[in-house]
Nucleic acid binder design. Structure first.
Lengths: 222, 222
DNA sequence: CCTGTTTCGTTGGTAATCCAACGGATTTGT
DNA sequence: ACAAATCCGTTGGATTACCAACGAAACAGG
């Protein structure tokens, strides 16, 4: 097992926490690493989970199976992303997805309750950690709100404009670059790629937007 | 101004906190109440907010205006719900919606940073409050994940089955009641009510589900 | 330079959804 | 019990999105 601390330092959960504390902190948090072979199921939908998972190596898929056995991928997790944190922190406990290793993985499990228990060694990082966790949950919250805002719109045109207006606002400019290619944007907005392309062309033809590759401009944007 | 403590006690943010502490706690949190007349805009999209809003009386709408001035209602807030908590806790600061009073309102504003500052009077509620906040954010997270899961599906039939399977799982039974009427369910799944009704009828005709009013049963489940 | 790959726009037929309208059933208020 | 209002299912035509397929352009590797 290689040194996972560089990965942890990259996690928003541990920002602002001194690297020298990691060893003691891990012990204090009841953290333990687990290896998972490719194809292995880390946990099954409906399982009761009490630990937050932090992927330090490999690649995970969160998947959902319907009654007929069809499997759909909800998300892909790459280091240093976490999973199950919402379920654990909410106290719901039963995880709504299965977690499957797509490659050989190494996962750090952290006991959520121990984040709050003031420890005998008077670890200073507890409050910082909790604050970080709030930030993680809240940011995810904001991202999901925005996504819902977009995909709730009825037509592709409306979804696109909703998305682009958000980008423009974030960038404080009518011109902006987007972090997706067409296929990814289509997946994000939950529409067909070809239909998306067609709608983009139409918006351009109507003079509402201009674009080239991933650079977009909204016209008449105040 | 009437006594707001009963409302606060109903808020998940204050569960498990002794009622006798409320006065001191409010002072410690830098909380202040604000009255808003019907129609008044509490804050505008893009404003920088540093306080969490907790509605203690009245009714709020979170709204979004597009370039052409069309206003769409994102959510309705009723006591004792909060708003802006994700934006504040995430550190993003700029609120992505406008907040409008639909009735005369009373709002309690809470300084997020003061939740963490250990106070001189050694208030015992701080850690409990923070824990509650994590729970609030995480639960909202889980709810939104589920919603995205449903409305991401391509057809009304798939959206319905996704929703109903979640309900069945939550209820640990193939039979369950839903908290929506048809119009509300259509809004939640982001489809037309009439199309939803038609799809429900078809699912019933195909023997996949049975229902009467808000009571549903999934066949071949489990 | 050549080639295989990926990305993107276009098109046309098919399928699904929207939309407005209507009637029946149920509920609510008086 | 009656009237008004609300909720729900149904229908048909208009709109929109899906889907598969294709070709052009951009790109990467040899």
């Amino acid at each position: 097992m290689k040194n996972i601390f560089p990965v942890l330092r990259a996690s928003p959960l541990f920002t602002g926490i001194d690297g020298g504390d990691f060893d003691r902190m891990m012990a204090c948090l009841g953290a333990y690493a687990r290896q998972c072979g490719k194809g292995e199921t880390v946990c099954f939908e409906g399982d009761t989970v009490t630990d937050i998972g932090l992927l330090t190596n490999g690649r995970l898929h969160l998947v959902k199976d319907d009654i007929w056995g069809n499997r759909s991928i909800v998300t892909e997790i790459t280091p240093p992303e976490m999973f199950a944190e919402s379920v654990v922190c909410s106290g719901i406990g039963r995880i709504p997805v299965s977690v499957v290793a797509r490659e050989d993985c190494e996962i750090l499990f952290i006991d959520y309750r121990k984040m709050f228990t003031a420890c005998s060694t008077a670890c200073v990082f507890h409050s910082k950690l909790i604050r970080n966790m709030i930030g993680v949950l809240a940011r995810k919250n904001v991202l999901m709100s925005a996504k819902i805002e977009h995909i709730t719109k009825r037509t592709i045109k409306e979804k696109l404009l909703s998305y682009m207006m958000e980008q423009a606002r974030k960038n404080s400019s009518a011109a902006f670059d987007i972090p997706f290619n067409r296929q990814e944007l289509a997946d994000y907005l939950s529409v067909e790629r070809s239909a998306l392309s067609a709608e983009l062309s139409k918006l351009k033809a109507d003079g509402i937007i201009a674009y080239r590759k991933n650079h977009f401009e909204l016209h008449n944007y105040g």
